[in-house]
Amino acid sequence: MKVSDFDYDLPEELIAQKPADPRDESQLMVLDRNTGRITEGIFKEIVNFIEPGDTIVLNNTEVIPARLYGKKEETGGKVEFLLLTETGLDTWEVLVKPGRKVKIGTRVVFGDNDLIAEVKGRTDFGGRVVEFEYDGVFAEVLDKLGEMPLPPYITKELEKKEQYQTVYAQKRGAAAAPTAGLHFTEEVLDQLEDKGINIATITLHVGLGTFRPVRADKVEEHDMHAEYYEVTDKAAKTINQTKEVGGKVIAVGTTVTRTLETVGSEDGYVAADKGWTDIFIYPGYEFKVVDELLTNFHLPKSTLIMMISAFAGYDKVMSAYQQAIDKKYRFYSFGDAMLIT
């Protein structure tokens, strides 16, 4: 299967530069993956498309201000870090710009010596392993010095950091937001619960695996970078009880989908677990747990559009994307939503 099969032309003006305000006023496309029928509405109407007894699964990861700008201690040369994964006490895997000039042993200073990093090694994806030195609490130092790691296609600064955070974010550790969840407000969540719809939360710290570009020519040749996940006993119990009574499990986003399919058994049930997943879902994959999927409109040739093509069917997805373009939906992280039923 060719990566180029998942390409499409998107007018630049359809790349959303900021979220809808309020966030639940974004457009919602509902795609029936069996018939290809499309229904359109506003996101806050999502409660009308979900039945009592169904379970919505959210990713409660919290984006950290993972982008840091510093300078080499020795030469003063500018260096940019993107924190990806904490691998040990004060040790992180990071992406570095300019990478080729940041060698093992290089020390990088951030702020007024508030934070110092020493490069200890290289990663298999071209990044670096660094160890940080600082006084106080790392999270507080990061809040002071770091910036939200917006994707490169968002060229405008955020008015508030909270715009790139879900309203239910709890566990710090993501380098990017689980963007399908950005549409939810407290009011929408309350309406879902009032209707008798269950809400379960899992954690997957979004990192390089989610947004790493596909550089291979063939889909099957792409390697996913592992990301950390947690599924609690409570979440597993809610999901399994839903399965037992014939309810549907609705994954909010590709990160939730990857997590549930990682911990799912062949009969569709899940087990509480935590660890690292590098699962890569593309057409031909047989889904075990997820019955419906809420997602955004994704970049061409990305692992994300490959996943939803596996879920809904390639032809139906590409047709739906063309309709979204024709009707001027907003695309990517701050764009509109698609519910695949």
Rank of each mutant, 00 (worst) to 15 (best):
T39I: 14
P213W: 05
M224N: 11
T277V: 01
V57L: 10
Y134H: 12
A337L: 11
R258P: 06
P11M: 02
V30Q: 07
A200T: 02
N59P: 05
V79D: 11
T106R: 10
K195W: 02
Y168E: 12
D32E: 13
L304N: 03
L82N: 02
Q191G: 00
L145G: 04
P11W: 03
K2L: 13
K316L: 14
E51V: 03
F49V: 13
I64M: 12
Y282W: 10
F311E: 09
L89K: 12
V96Q: 11
L89P: 13
Y329W: 11
Q170P: 00
D112G: 05
I104R: 15
L192Q: 07
G99I: 11
E118K: 15
N198T: 07
H298L: 06
V130R: 05
S26H: 02
A200P: 06
M318R: 02
N240F: 00
L142T: 04
G181M: 12
V252H: 05
R212M: 15
R37G: 14
A216K: 04
E62S: 13
V96K: 00
P11L: 03
T35H: 06
S26F: 08
V96S: 06
V79S: 08
G53E: 06
E157W: 01
A310H: 13
K327T: 09
H183T: 04
K103H: 13
G99A: 14
G70A: 10
P283N: 09
V289M: 08
N113D: 13
T210R: 10
V96H: 01
E25H: 15
T341V: 14
D190A: 14
V252E: 03
T91L: 07
A139D: 15
T155M: 02
I116D: 09
G268E: 04
F43V: 02
D336I: 03
L299Q: 13
V47F: 06
V167C: 12
V129M: 12
E220D: 08
M1W: 03
K327C: 05
L182E: 00
K78T: 13
G209R: 00
D5K: 09
